[in-house]
Structure formats: structure tokens, C-alpha cells
Design a protein around this nucleic acid. Structure first.
Lengths: 122, 122
DNA sequence: TTAGATGCAAACATTTTGCCGCGAT
DNA sequence: ATCGCGGCAAAATGTTTGCATCTAA
């Protein structure tokens, strides 16, 4: 795995943003620092970092993945009004241990999505 | 809202399938009964039913939405090996009441996804 | 020096949409 | 008879990929 300026800045910008950006939003931010950056590089880098467990891919029903630069156990609140995604800093694994012990198969991780209207939109 | 044979059969087939199909998979099933059905109709109907709260749209990171014909509180297990989605018949809202009371904004619903390897793939 | 990474553009997969004719009410 | 709905195909969207070039190691 080669260290390139693109990879450095993509991860750096993702971690600086608290907004769980889409690939396109992240691309626009990175572009300010590397004007020649391409979409292909952004996607390839995001997938690489995800596969190495350094970032998390979030799927919501609005077609495009969101990306989260932090991998500690936490959950997400999705605002159905503005589309914003907010962190819920809580590890739920202890609360849900009962469920997990009853699931057939091997559990690797879990993720809770809370849907609603954020306080800014209320 | 007009009652048509297409809408009847789309909902019927979705509820018969326990597999949380993609739109394409569902389309293929419906096509056996209505050979002239179009993708547009399937998508329009799924969105209509979702907006009316009769079915649920599930988003996973593998690009296409899955659809669930049942809306009672339950969760999902996603197998990273075969891509299958299995129901976890449990309402977690009581267990997570603490989290919900601390989320800023109005919570409408929540959904837990458990990622792992299902027992068939182990 | 060279394997691996980037940039670019074309290809892809999925979903959405406009239009017109049809059919449920 | 009306107007919402379905079929069709084109367009839009988000993502992935092939290839030539470049560059970190």
C-alpha cells in the first residue's frame, strides 16, 4: 500500500468533516486542495480504507453512500427533512447482547439507524 | 388511489417472498404473472406503498434497495457472504428507550442492522 | 526501476421520468 | 367520460473500470 498525497488528504478531509459526506461532497472538498483529483481516486480510496477498517460506509435509502471517518462504536440519526446524518455516541452492543446471542450465524458488527426530524428542522 | 391488478400483485408477491428482494428480483417474480409489467410500474408502486407505510425500504451498502412487505417492528441480519437478508423478529425500542430520549429531535422509527455470516454460510 | 496509483472517460447498474394511450371508477 | 395509471424508452444518478501515464518506494 503506497502512501500518496491523495490518500492522505482524502482521509484527512473525511475526518475533518463531521457531516458524513457522500463521495461527491468529499470529492468537492478534496478538490480544493488537489484540483486534479478524480472521482475514480476518491471511490477507490474510500473502498480501500473501508476494507482496511479505517472508515465506515453508511447506507441510507437515498441512493448514495455516506462515509464516516471514525470507527468506534456509535450510531446514527438520519433527518428525513434535511437529509443530515448526526452521530449518536453510544455503544449499543451491551444493551442488545440478548438479541445477538439468539441470531443464527456469526455476528461481526451492528449498526442502529434512527430516523426522524432533527432539532434544527423541527 | 386507484386499485389495479399491477398494484395488487406487486404487494402480494412482495409479501409472499421472504427474501427481501431487490426491485429487479421482485420485477422478475411479478413478470411471471403479468408478462407486460414494466420496471417503472414496479418502482412507482414500491414508492407509493412505502410512502403509505405499507412496506419498508431497506438500504444496504451493496447499492440496490431491498424491500420488506411487513412493517411490524423487527430488525435485519445481513450476511456478508451470500448477501441474504434475514428477519430478526424483535422489537428493540424498549431496550433502546434510553438512547431515544437523549436524541435531539423527533424520533420516528429506528432500525437495527446486524452484519455477519449466516449459519448457512458458516 | 517498477509495481502500484492516478486521471480521464467510458461503461455500468439502478432508479427516475416524460409521454401517450388505456382502463378503473 | 375522466383522469389516474401503466408501458415504454430515454434520461438521470451514483459508482466502477480500462487504459495510458505517472510516481512512491
Amino acid at each position: 500500500m503506497r502512501q500518496t498525497i491523495q490518500r492522505q488528504i482524502i482521509l484527512e478531509e473525511l475526518r475533518n468533516l463531521k457531516t458524513h459526506p457522500t463521495a461527491k461532497e468529499l470529492y468537492n472538498h478534496v478538490k480544493k486542495r488537489i484540483p486534479t483529483i478524480s472521482f475514480g481516486t476518491v471511490y477507490r480510496t474510500l473502498h480501500l480504507l473501508r476494507d482496511r477498517g479505517e472508515i465506515i460506509e453508511l447506507a441510507f435509502a437515498d441512493r448514495s453512500s455516506r462515509w464516516d471517518g471514525f470507527t468506534h462504536p456509535h450510531q446514527h440519526f438520519y433527518c428525513e427533512s434535511c437529509g443530515g446524518v448526526y452521530d449518536v455516541e453510544e455503544d449499543i452492543s451491551n444493551k442488545l447482547a440478548g438479541i445477538l446471542s439468539r441470531v443464527p450465524g456469526k455476528v461481526k458488527r451492528m449498526h442502529l439507524k434512527i430516523y426522524g426530524i432533527c432539532d434544527k428542522c423541527l
